[in-house]
Design a protein around this nucleic acid. Structure first.
Lengths: 126, 126
DNA sequence: AATAAAATCAGTAATCATTACTGATTTGTG
DNA sequence: CACAAATCAGTAATGATTACTGATTTTATT
């Protein structure tokens, strides 16, 4: 079993204790509350390692930032063009992996993104 | 009906005449064969406009580049970690839009990405 | 416990894909 | 033909992310 550094543990803790999809900088600010001397480079490096290990997900929605997700279960990311938030929706089955398998592709990670308007913003527009 | 500039038309032509998922720079080089004086900024600006209009798709797989797709039908993008190519797979139904609708989200665009190893690379490894 | 090798770190500098800017050119409208 | 609006080519600026460096911490071995 792999033993993580305290910096990597702290980053994972932050990611797993939020239901948002924070950027590297947001995570950096949050981790600094516990480890004031951690550097932004360390956050980036560990996020990269964790993503490569499959311990977290990297989500890109085209807003110029990388977003990270501590929930690695296959789920739907609803990106609202109005409020800019990424909402989660659980999935009953991993549709992508199942369909990809039909063509012989060996999937290890899946990303589902929907662009549009969320329920809350849909109410308040007009 | 909207009338596109010749630059925008040329960019769309290039995107629709390839089954790859090129970067802005690749498109720039390709369009230059027909419009030698076009600038990279023009390519970026039009790709941005076309994406906002829903005429093309922007796909991000985490390799540091934005990729563009002239095929806007909902389909699966298989990103092979070995060869770095994005393979397409057609979908019978737009699963994301259907599921997102259940929670009241109004979807206009969907992106499906699978990370893993493609059939061809799976053969040649080892 | 001591030592060496390997991994990770903080801090900072560099990168480079993308965006913003500017003055010129083209297009649309009457 | 004006006139305004849109788009352009060319270039400069941006800033999120990555790379680098020497110090510190962890792991492995004896």
């Amino acid at each position: 079993m792999k033993h993580y550094s305290k910096q990597r543990e702290a980053i994972l803790d932050v990611l797993r204790s939020t239901d948002t999809h924070p950027t590297a900088n947001w995570i950096y600010e949050k981790v600094r509350e516990k480890l004031p001397n951690i550097s932004l480079g360390t956050v980036y490096r560990n996020l990269s390692t964790l993503t490569a290990d499959g311990a977290i997900l990297k989500i890109e929605v085209g807003d110029g930032f990388e977003h990270f997700d501590g929930d690695i279960s296959p789920h739907l990311h609803l990106y609202c063009r109005e409020c800019g938030k990424i909402h989660d929706q659980t999935l009953k089955s991993d549709y992508i992996t199942r369909v990809a398998k039909e063509s012989g592709f060996k999937t290890d990670t899946t990303i589902y993104v929907a662009y549009g308007i969320c329920t809350n913003c849909n109410k308040t527009i007009n």
